[in-house]
Design a protein around this nucleic acid. Sequence first.
DNA 1: TACGCGTGGCG
DNA 2: TCGCCAAGCGT
Length: 307
Amino acid sequence: MTTTTSATPPAATTAGTAHPLHTPVIAWFEAHARDLPWRRPEAGAWGVMVSEFMLQQTPVNRVLPMYEQWLARWPRPADLAAEPPGEAVRAWGRLGYPRRALRLHAAATAITERHGGEVPDDHAELLALPGVGEYTAAAVASFAYGRRHAVLDTNVRRVFARAVTGVEYPPNATTAAERRLARELLPGEEAVAARWAAATMELGALVCTARSPECGRCPIAGDCAWRAAGSPAHDGPPRRGQTYAGTDRQVRGRLLAVLREAHGPVPQAALDAVWDEPVQRARALDGLVADGLVEPLEGARYRLPLT
DNA sequence: TACGCGTGGCG
DNA sequence: TCGCCAAGCGT
């Protein structure tokens, strides 16, 4: 829906890199892709970058309203860079992992200072920005600028693990073999490669999901190595779980929530009220300060960072 | 390499 | 109910 392609070329690629999965996956994408705001032309590269930061480990539905608020308030990198980092943290709301807000603010500052206010289109320059790793650099270059990069996120890794490798889940950490496979499967033609990147991600997000894949709706079910093997259950080390209850993360979340909602300096006593165990509470607060998410003031008071 | 880092919805 | 899961990054 995001483009008006007529007559999709037959998995056309430059070298001998055409692969039987290209055409059905891209055709499926043309028919079923969601109309997400960061996929519209008016989003621009900055919109794509903001969405990618927000989508790091956070579901689309929770990102949508925050994305709209951020783009309305800060339509260009320089607009965000002109405000204190604490404003980014406050506007992050309850999206989680608030260090992303700090890093997005720092990235906006770097873009303003080093790139004339324009999000760079070069993978290496993107990678040099705070909070931009291998995935995000490839995603911005591919989705915003149509460049040819293997985009390996959790969705794509799962699709490849199943369809090509024949296992239910990819390894815990991205391996060299996965990167090689992703490069090998990448269509040779730049515009097709960008389409493929978005299409494989969308297939993983909508059909080839982690918990209950809907193989009946999958355009490549007939070519899927995992199905051909009888959909064997995951075998190997357990997938990395995330602990939360009772951890420092939960304490940090509570402390930061108080600071987000306050608009002046917050006295120590207000922070002490959110967690009764003093050692853990102090450790969590120290961590927030060390991360730059909280600024300590004179007289045992705290606020979101002004610098 | 493995771990720490938020939050909330779903099966 | 509660563990799993969600477009990762930095160290």
